[in-house]
């Protein structure tokens, strides 16, 4: 029991001072491109973590290093307590990856490709056949098992990519932009799958362009920009500490200029269609709302309409990086 507890305390992924720069394609042009300037990242076992950042921020490089695709220049990465270089067989067998780019294969059916994939992880056909069948069924690909990748629709390709990442039953699932370029319906379907996998105990590392996706799914997010993690935390905490919300109230029959009515809040007052419009700037709109309404109505104000604008992770992102994520 104790050892199980200890094990769960070992982070799933632990990145320390990770640095990476790329040589230019044309070496004579000179000048390295610095991709990562020293990243620290700890993802707990069983956690759903989102790495957010604009293109070129270093998301894919970070994932590439964790999975062994890209060589690190400096720093260290361990997966479930073991080093990714000296213990690469261990660390890689614990990770399943769904890369950003969809893989193509001209020769084999998707079922066969899954058996190959399992084989690369040292799993014999007979040990994995039940699991492959179940995964294909679960992701709605069973009827297509004898098709080749090019015969699948875009959404099916994406699902196949995830099934492939799961074939060896990894503890950690890394998804690089899993919902890039797919329609809304499939996005929601994938979200459901991911939630379920998380419930089953998988650690999930997700990179995304879609902030709402991270806000909705991830327990913690890190915002990465120009090779460093600018901020990290629970989405709600980030919004609370870095974002701002507002409450708009449309009033008549009262004089809101009486300061006493609504003291303690900063607001802007504007005349509006026979009444007034008040815009309060607050940290947590839900908490402040009742106080504001109480103060206003106890003074006989007639409230026509209330609008709440909550700050989103997107605002946090823009305030930290100075640009929108899709710029």
């Amino acid at each position: 029991m104790r050892s199980a507890k200890l094990e769960s305390m070992i982070p799933a992924i632990d990145v320390r001072n990770l640095k990476k720069s790329y040589l230019p394609i044309n070496r004579r042009a000179g000048g390295k491109t610095i991709a990562l300037k020293g990243i620290d990242l700890t993802i707990k076992s069983g956690e759903f973590y989102g790495l957010l950042g604009p293109n070129g921020a270093g998301k894919t490089t970070t994932i590439g290093i964790i999975t062994g695709l890209v060589r690190l220049d400096e720093g260290s990465v361990s997966v479930m307590g073991k080093d990714i270089i000296s213990d690469y067989r261990f660390t890689r067998s614990k990770i399943g990856v769904s890369p950003q780019e969809l893989t193509v294969d001209w020769f084999f059916t998707i079922e066969r490709l899954l058996y190959f994939q399992a084989g690369y992880y040292g799993i014999r056909k007979e040990e994995v056949s039940d699991r492959i069948e179940q995964l294909l069924k679960k992701f709605g690909l069973y009827k297509k098992r004898n098709s080749k990748i090019r015969e699948l629709s875009g959404g099916m390709k994406r699902r196949f990519q995830i099934v492939k990442a799961l074939v060896h039953d990894p503890e950690i699932l890394i998804l690089d932009e899993p919902t890039a370029g797919i329609d809304v319906e499939l996005r929601h379907m994938l979200w459901d799958y991911l939630r379920q996998l998380h419930k089953e105990g998988k650690t999930i590392l997700l990179t995304t362009h879609y902030i709402d996706e991270a806000e909705l799914l991830c327990e913690r997010v890190g915002i990465i920009n120009e090779g460093t993690i600018v901020v990290e935390g629970k989405p709600s905490e980030l919004i609370q500490s870095l974002g701002k919300g507002s409450i708009e109230v449309y009033l008549s029959d009262c004089d809101p200029e009486k300061e006493a009515l609504i003291s303690g809040f900063s607001y802007v007052l504007e005349p509006y269609d026979g009444g007034s419009r008040l815009v309060f700037s607050v940290d947590e709109p839900e908490k402040s709302l009742s106080e504001i309404i109480k103060a206003l109505s106890s003074n006989g104000c007639h409230i026509h309409e209330v609008k709440i604008t909550k700050s989103s992770l997107e605002d946090v992102f823009i305030s930290l990086t100075g640009r929108a994520i899709n710029d």
Partner: peptide, 27 residues
């Protein structure tokens, strides 16, 4: 969506090190 959890695999021997013969044979 089928919410049944797919059967988990036993410990992967390849994680313990040594030559990955099954992987080699598969490729």
């Amino acid at each position: 969506m089928n919410t049944q959890k797919p059967e988990s695999l036993k410990k992967l021997p390849v994680a313990e090190g040594g030559i990955n013969w099954i992987g080699f044979r598969t490729l």
